[in-house]
Write a protein that binds this DNA or RNA. Sequence first.
DNA 1: CCACGGATTGGCT
DNA 2: GCCAATCCGTGGA
Length: 204
Amino acid sequence: MNPEQSHKKLERQFYTRELLTVAKELLGKILVKNDGKIKLSGKIVEVEAYGGSFDEAAHTYGGKTKRNEIMFGIGGFLYVYFTYGTHFCCNVVTGKEGDGTAILIRAIQPVNGIKRMTYNRFGRDLIIEKEKYNLTNGPGKICQSLSITKKHYGIDLTGDKIFLLDQTILNDDQIVFSKRIGIKKSIDLLWRLYLKDNPFVSRK
DNA sequence: CCACGGATTGGCT
DNA sequence: GCCAATCCGTGGA
């Protein structure tokens, strides 16, 4: 059965829990970008947790600024940032007011709207089968294929524009806990979580 | 005001 | 494996 038709939208209380709890349970959930007639969606297969008093790699480490203020709010909102002059990345804010924690969505497995995602990414149809795996296997690629930009900063994930659909919670033995990618601080935390053996994960 | 560099990606050696 | 692209948030003068 199509997972988009068989599960409910995640509510506020899913997001307001502790960072790593939410990170684990985000795996396997369906991310939906609702563009009206067209709905783009994918299963979350890789995430990274950020935030808390000792995580120097988190954007919240230096305190509240205009850029990161949504991360300091209550869970269930979207934190979008722009980096390297080229890419957007999207995060799910977690926890209570003031926590400053969020989870970067690093890779999804396309479910619906694959043709549209392909056009958003490459400006054309798929040419080779292999390209299917290059659609959404990275944080910048997700935002490009789903057309998520700065204007989606702060969107309420309990609304109907961008949201998550509930799915079965996965067991720990299906999840790999590893070091985060592309950071220079707090590099030893095993806060990158991904689905074991999933071909849409950004790297092993 | 200015300088620095980044939670990335894609192309080339 | 190396590096440029290309913007803007952040921090120091």
